[in-house]
């Protein structure tokens, strides 16, 4: 493992969101990386189909649910982004299609 000095800049990496490349820093949550890319919504609600993204940002509200690597209902504000992740907008329960 690389030694950790206080000022070392961690190397950024990429994952995809709905096919678009998004840059993330090691340890950054999926939600934080999406915000940095100017993306605020990555779910549509079950009844109204309204767009939602992170709201509480600490794992309480479940508004930030995303489908990550094919698995729906992941809380994007808690989940650390990993190189090569495939994040997609979750429609409704995420099990509909």
């Amino acid at each position: 493992m690389r030694s950790r000095t206080p000022r070392a800049t961690p190397a950024p990496f990429t994952f995809t969101f709905d096919g678009r490349r998004v840059t993330a820093l090691p340890g950054q949550s999926v939600a934080a990386a999406l915000w940095c890319a100017g993306i605020l919504a990555w779910r549509t609600t079950r009844h109204g189909g309204a767009p939602r993204g992170a709201f509480c940002a600490i794992g309480t509200c479940f508004d930030c649910l995303a489908t990550v690597n094919g698995r729906p209902n992941r809380r994007a504000c808690l989940l650390p982004a990993r190189p090569g992740d495939t994040v997609t907008t979750q429609q409704g329960t995420g099990h509909d299609r």
Partner: peptide, 9 residues
């Protein structure tokens, strides 16, 4: 929290 933990606005 997003700013402190994820450097995101």
């Amino acid at each position: 929290a997003m700013l402190k933990g994820g450097l995101a606005l």
